[in-house]
Design a protein around this nucleic acid. Sequence first.
DNA 1: CTGAAAGCGCTAACAT
DNA 2: ATGTTAGCGCTTTCAG
Lengths: 350, 350
Amino acid sequence: MNEDLPLASGSPTLEDVARVAGVSRATVSRVINGIRNVDPAIQETVRQAISTTGYVPNQAARSLVTRRTGAIALVVSGAGGESEEHPFPGQVFADPFFGRVAGGIVGFLRPRGIHPILMFAETPEARAQVITYLRQGNADGAVLVSTHAEDPLPRLLAGSGLPAVLFARPAKPIPISYVDVAHRAGAKLAADHLVARGCRRVATVSGPLDVPASQDRLAGFRDAMAAHGHPYIPCVEGNFTHDSGEAAMERLLAEHPDVDGVFVANDLMAQGALLVLRHHGRRVPDDIAVVGFDDSSAALACRPPLTTVRHPVEDMAAEMARLLLTHIEQPGHQVTSVIFEPTLVVRQSA
Amino acid sequence: MNEDLPLASGSPTLEDVARVAGVSRATVSRVINGIRNVDPAIQETVRQAISTTGYVPNQAARSLVTRRTGAIALVVSGAGGESEEHPFPGQVFADPFFGRVAGGIVGFLRPRGIHPILMFAETPEARAQVITYLRQGNADGAVLVSTHAEDPLPRLLAGSGLPAVLFARPAKPIPISYVDVAHRAGAKLAADHLVARGCRRVATVSGPLDVPASQDRLAGFRDAMAAHGHPYIPCVEGNFTHDSGEAAMERLLAEHPDVDGVFVANDLMAQGALLVLRHHGRRVPDDIAVVGFDDSSAALACRPPLTTVRHPVEDMAAEMARLLLTHIEQPGHQVTSVIFEPTLVVRQSA
DNA sequence: CTGAAAGCGCTAACAT
DNA sequence: ATGTTAGCGCTTTCAG
């Protein structure tokens, strides 16, 4: 090994390492990429050379030939029209839900040396930019978390032929892979629990009814309650925000003052509902039991702590990443959906 | 323009566009990169060729020669030791604060065609990976949001010579650029407001006292209260979480039952404090006034809505991105800090 | 098991 | 104003 050859200025390249180790570029490349058929002694020499030179591979050069970037896009998308209202994108990120998704994705991808590029797609321009960005080969594929039913991005993605996976089933059938939770089963868990604890006059606060998740939670809840002999379940529609939960609960109380149990379609709304109940002097769970959905950080911030249906977001996000990787590695892989089972987390609100 | 030349398989390259347009690669490159000195007629021909071929530039090839990736790392970092506790990284993302940072960064960077790569650096390995990742040229620089005072990453980054900017002043002096808010001035705003509304027995809940932001908010509050003739201000330390806010308020009430005003060092803790006050039957703001810090989404979720010191997080994040870009473009640029002035947002809690 | 050589697609001197 | 030509640093046949 030639210890003291002059290195070119700038950061060392394969060439430099090869010269120091007294071998060819190809050999250095082989040891770096862990390809066998390299003499152990030479391997050692090369490793030495790598550390004495302080060599790090140049990802651009590598990508140019392998056609892989080691990055994927993590797209948070809305339906559009939000551009004028906010000076900054990504307000939606205030929901702790997205942090959980990000955590799940990174947990799976990071050990594999892959990293997510964060993109918001709240306007038509932003959506077009996402597609262009992927086409330029800045990322090998995309995972998409969509907040609105009318979001056109899933279709754009499916049409582009780029590897992509959605969080949640699209509102209209689109040939694209996705992961989701069994919303109906989760709602049934809530219904069974409320009935089991003796609630007789049960109502629900749903999410926005144009999104499949909300529809399914509502339908699942009503079906389960019907099976328990409660054919009519009053419902007020919310939009998954804290404030809408308050408003919905307020209305429910006005229209059905005697409710003794309520299933709220997500924890953030349930938190708002709890505030309203307390304000009206209703004791939870004694006067009225409340079950949420998600088991987000909001559930623990509630008083009393919220009994809720656990949405395994991190596991789902990890699966989404895994699915994306198979689509990237096997371009012809068939469209797949993976459904997770929710569980009930019993705390004190019901 | 030669409409019907055979295109190579795969996606079209500059070469293909050039052939179709009947010009050289260099000319096509010039029009794509908006370099003048190109005949308008030829420009038009080239644009035509680009759209007929469906050409999109290959970013890897471009990066290889320009030494720019058009990506920066957005690093959320902790002090370490969190690896065993959580199966997934980024739990900290539950705090809406990070969503605001991300929004501010993207708002500034996206129009410039730059995107953030999300990285969590909660363990020593993860931190090393961040450095390696940057060295490999996967990103042109990093913005760092650190959650703990003992985080070693700022120092690693400063030592590496890679372009980087911090959110918030590091606990110990490090030669690295950062943006921050005038914590003392913000705390003074809170103090002045509490005094002006007639509070006489004032206390505070601070953040973790090993981080400069907490120290400064506490010191600024105490100084301002002293100036108003209140030399002794009781303080209970929290850690910026909802739960710690509850615990702190509980303790404050036990030790100083007669407090009539409290400055809580962030909104999440203030939310917890408000819950405790209500539980103890204290009316807010009549019996006791509460002022928070941040003006995060939690402030509006409080009952009553929280009077708080607005932390201009999005603007600060945008500035952080701007600063990083200047460091990337001018490698020798001097270390800089930018301090933002907070404002008081008066709602109903004080 | 190792080396030589041919590009990957693009930009940027340098010529013209 | 446009074309020619050299690479950027790496992987990967193909020989040996």
